[in-house]
Nucleic acid binder design. Structure first.
Lengths: 249, 249
DNA sequence: CGAAGGCTTGACGGTATTCAAGCATAGTGG
DNA sequence: CCACTATGCTTGAATACCGTCAAGCCTTCG
């Protein structure tokens, strides 16, 4: 609406609006909706519990969000990460309860848009509908890739794949610098993502770093030293993976 | 109208279009499109290879279809089954290649609708759009439940969950009779679905049947003898699971 | 009747989990 | 400034679970 609006959407951590969000719809209406529903969540805060009723669409503007499910005995599986520019609607087939827990892993700015409002927005913009469908498709592709490795992959394969996936997603939003990036996860959480115990995550990553394939420091700043070899271990073609899990901009 | 739509998507034999129905009626249009694109596929035929270009939406009218991905060394993971009434669009984020292999597991009748045609159909009917979104949501819910168990579950849990999922899905389309149903899968394929080797599927199912929780014959006709205990092992509440993975009708 | 495909079971081995202890770091309050 | 705690990483040892290999059996089908 005014330049303040644009500025408001731009976070201090992001030099620019996540390109995928701005590509959603050129109209100012989206920005208005996002801005008016924008909220900040501190790291670790839980936006929604598994099974809780949910009638909103979440647009992540900045920060990391995790979608997860837990077994009765407290084991947790992270189903997907939601990164800046992503849109998720956690509702199940019945369209009113969330099938997953939603948790901010870092400080996150999120537009929590009521489904009714969102539906109106979609109604008005075919671009936005296309964009949403693209985002859903890429989430499905990512989940499929991970399911393949959860079912059939070794620990090395799962870790290598997980890191490449995050590398590509972070690259797409300008958060990778010289093959170096940060993930706001503990080894425990990386294990919940890749289906491994935290102990085995540690062993596996140490093995990879001893082989000079990557480096990690205690802040979980990761540098990929040998992408070729990582891709080999993960069993992916990086270029192909990129087109299938990253929405075209 | 909605129930007509479902009937159209699910019926074994396409209902005749009454001549009195207006050609502008969206459900009538749907029927017309489905009928004109309907094709039959024999068991084992592969409709689409992983990575092949794909510009169609698949509406399964009858029979079983599997979506799968494979590793370079030939290990396969079945990502999801597509059953009568389901709609899938296998395209990845780039909207033109399929991320998965599509295979008929039994003789199947499928309407292969070009995306353009499908988009027009959707444009004209908000009910159909809602329906499609519901079907996508339930597929996501199912995949999430399975990911949780692929990552954190034991073999018993995976098998019990898989069978309950199929039991509920088949129930919803009237293919379960007295807790008895048929799945057109080998143990190998059930293993590809649940992330187990065929040998371990065999052991696990035998263990379950020795415990009098279920019976299986050589035709993969399964009877659930103790749903309570199955649900316990699978770690699910059957009623809750049903609402989250089965589209409301 | 032979071949092919699928199920079943045993034996063995490998991979990942669990348990446990030690270490490092950051934050807190005396 | 220094305990003191909490949290997370690291490593070893023991164990459990599941995969692989292999053989035997059954059914189906040409």
């Amino acid at each position: 609406m005014n330049s303040n609006l644009i500025a408001a959407l731009r976070s201090d951590h992001m030099p620019r609006l996540p390109s995928s969000v701005s590509a959603l719809d050129p109209s100012a209406q989206l920005e208005k909706v996002l801005r008016s529903h924008r909220r900040g969540f501190s790291a670790g805060s839980i936006l929604k519990l598994e099974g809780e009723s949910s009638v909103a669409t979440y647009c992540v503007l900045d920060g990391w969000v995790a979608l997860s499910k837990s077994t009765q005995d407290g084991q947790r599986q992270i189903i997907d990460f939601v990164l800046p520019g992503d849109i998720i609607n956690p509702s199940s087939a019945n369209k009113c309860t969330s099938t997953m827990q939603i948790e901010a892993l870092s400080y996150a700015r999120i537009a929590v848009v009521p489904n009714v409002t969102w539906a109106n927005l979609i109604e008005g913009g075919p671009m936005l509908r296309m964009r949403e469908s693209q985002i859903i498709s890429s989430a499905l592709s990512r989940m499929s890739e991970r399911m393949l490795r959860l079912g059939k992959g070794t620990a090395e394969m799962r870790i290598a794949y997980s890191l490449i996936e995050l590398y590509l997603r972070l690259s797409a939003i300008g958060k990778v610098d010289n093959d170096r990036f940060h993930i706001p996860l503990t080894q425990q959480q990386l294990g919940e993502f890749s289906g491994l115990s935290s102990v085995h995550v540690c062993r596996t990553m140490r093995r990879l770093s001893r082989k000079n394939i990557l480096t990690v420091n205690s802040q979980m700043d990761i540098t990929i030293l040998d992408l070729q070899e990582m891709a080999e271990i993960a069993g992916v073609d990086v270029a192909v993976l990129n087109t299938s899990i990253i929405p075209t901009q």
